[in-house]
Structure formats: structure tokens, C-alpha cells
Computed example of a mutant assay.
Amino acid sequence: MSALPSTSLWTRLSNPGHFLRWSGAAGPWLAGLSALTLGLGLYLSWFVAPPDYQQGETVRIMFIHVPAAWLGVFFYGSMTLSAIGTLVWRHPLADVAQRAAAPIGAAFTLICLVTGSLWGKPMWGTYWVWDARLTSMLVLFLIYCGIIALWRTMEDPNRAARAVAILTLVGAVNLPIIKFSVNWWSTLHQPASILRMGGPTIDPSMLYPLLTMIAAATLLGVTLHLYAMRTEILRRRVRTLTIREAERLDAGAPVLVPGPAAGSTPLGQAL
């Protein structure tokens, strides 16, 4: 008897129709909250946070760079969980979530790389160095691109989902490398400044705006992911209906053309 509630919950969570209903209701609220938090974060980071005593105004790039880096890693972590859901539990929404997350994660990773290069020019004297942290983030971006390309080159959705799930799990090895690269190797990139044993090393006047921007970026990313999943579900439904219609036509079934409604005037008489 105790298995029934869990089975019912699993059925509801794996039902695309149920997901479309609750996400349609939650989406506008998430979007509004994202906009408000992002507006507050931009105001704090650009007009309240002071310039750094060494970096000057260049430090403001950090308020975009750090949230983008966090989301690049965050979305790949969520894709790893989705890959497990696809291969182990065959959850109907797992590969939907994974496919929807890949372009978003790739976009934030690219923003991280670009903003890091813009910061590196005045600070390091060059746009790029083959630093362990930078290189591992570049590898993450290339993995994202490979996953997106693999999905688009395979026509069978089920085979594509399994292949992408396996590739995602293999690429997950890069996540701890990104995190601990500044500790394992001698790098130009600064070590962790927020999540560290001794507490944050950033001054509160910059830390709180940065945390606000991280929260805003996370809300924005979740909102984009929610709508991307909805789009993917609807795209698959349209694809299924198109295939069924094509199969029906191939079988020689008559094409159903709706006739004029009762009481309507024929087009020739109307003209």
C-alpha cells in the first residue's frame, strides 16, 4: 500500500502534460522575479559597489563573469543528473531537460570565456593564456558544442538521448577539474574567493552585489530552462503528429478536408 503514493508522485513528475500545466503557471512568476533580482543586482554592482583598489573599474566585469561561470557548471551538473535519469530510470522528461539545458549552459560558458578574456587583457596583458582554469572552461564549452551537435545529427530521438547521456557522463569528469584546477596546479587564475574553508575573501561591499547577481543569474537560467523544456515538449508533440499524419497518408487514407459550416455562404456566391 505504501508504494502507491510514490508511484502516483512518479507518474505526475514524469507526465509532460502535468509539467506543461504547472510550468505554464510558474513561468511568468519566475520571469518577473528574475527581472527584479537582475535589476537590483545590476544596480548594486554598477552603482553601489566601489572600484577595486588594484583593478579599478575593471573589477565590475566580475559581476558578469562569476555568475556566468557558475551557471556554465551548474547546467552541466543538471545535465549529468538528467543523463542518469535517462539511462537508469528512463524518466520521460530527463532527456527533455538535458536537451533544453545544453544551449543555455553553452551560452553562459561562452559569456564566461569572453568576459574572462576582457578582464585578462588589462590584468594579465593578454586576452588568453593556457591556464588550467581557463582551459578546463574551454573544454566545457567544447563538450557543450559536441553534445548539441550529436543531438542534431541523430534522427532517432531515443538513440540520440542515450548517446548524449553517455557523452554527458564522460564529460562530467571535467567538473572537478574546473573546481580544483586552481588548487592542483600553479595557475594565474585566482583561487576560490567565496566558497572556501576560511570564508569569503571579498569585501562585503562587493560580496553582496556579487551574490545578488549570482542569485539573479540562477533565477534567469532556471526560467530559460523551464521555457526551453516547454518548447522541446511541444516540438516533440508536433513531430509525433507530423509522423502520424505522414504514415496515414502513406497508407492511402483519404485526406480530411473540412467542409463549410452549416448556414455559411459558399465562396463563389460570396464573391
Rank of each mutant, 00 (worst) to 15 (best):
2 S>D: 13
3 A>V: 14
4 L>M: 13
5 P>S: 07
11 T>P: 00
13 L>P: 03
17 G>T: 11
24 G>A: 10
24 G>N: 01
25 A>V: 13
25 A>L: 15
28 P>D: 10
28 P>K: 09
33 L>E: 07
35 A>H: 03
40 L>D: 00
41 G>I: 01
43 Y>T: 11
44 L>I: 01
44 L>T: 07
45 S>K: 10
47 F>C: 05
50 P>C: 10
50 P>R: 09
52 D>P: 12
52 D>K: 05
54 Q>C: 04
54 Q>Y: 14
57 E>L: 12
57 E>W: 13
58 T>K: 10
62 M>S: 09
63 F>Y: 14
68 A>D: 08
69 A>R: 01
74 F>G: 11
74 F>D: 04
75 F>M: 08
78 S>K: 04
79 M>P: 02
81 L>S: 09
81 L>F: 13
83 A>K: 08
90 R>G: 03
90 R>N: 11
91 H>I: 00
92 P>G: 08
92 P>A: 06
94 A>K: 12
97 A>P: 00
98 Q>L: 14
99 R>H: 07
105 G>Q: 09
106 A>Q: 03
107 A>V: 04
109 T>W: 01
111 I>P: 03
116 G>L: 02
117 S>E: 06
118 L>G: 05
118 L>I: 13
120 G>S: 15
123 M>E: 14
125 G>R: 04
127 Y>C: 10
128 W>V: 06
129 V>Q: 15
129 V>Y: 15
130 W>Y: 13
132 A>D: 07
132 A>T: 13
133 R>E: 00
135 T>M: 11
136 S>R: 11
139 V>S: 04
140 L>A: 04
142 L>S: 03
142 L>W: 15
144 Y>M: 06
145 C>H: 02
149 A>Q: 02
149 A>M: 10
151 W>T: 10
151 W>K: 08
156 D>S: 04
157 P>T: 10
158 N>G: 10
158 N>H: 12
160 A>Q: 12
161 A>I: 04
164 V>A: 15
164 V>K: 11
169 L>P: 09
173 V>P: 04
175 L>V: 12
175 L>K: 08
176 P>F: 02
179 K>Y: 12
181 S>R: 13
185 W>L: 15
186 S>F: 05
187 T>G: 08
189 H>P: 12
189 H>L: 12
191 P>A: 14
195 L>W: 08
195 L>P: 03
196 R>M: 08
197 M>C: 01
198 G>E: 15
200 P>K: 07
203 D>C: 00
205 S>W: 11
207 L>V: 10
211 L>E: 07
215 A>S: 15
225 H>I: 06
233 I>R: 00
234 L>S: 11
235 R>F: 11
240 T>H: 14
240 T>D: 13
241 L>V: 09
242 T>F: 04
246 A>N: 02
246 A>H: 08
251 A>N: 00
254 P>A: 14
257 V>D: 04
257 V>G: 00
258 P>Y: 03
261 A>V: 13
265 T>Y: 06
267 L>K: 06
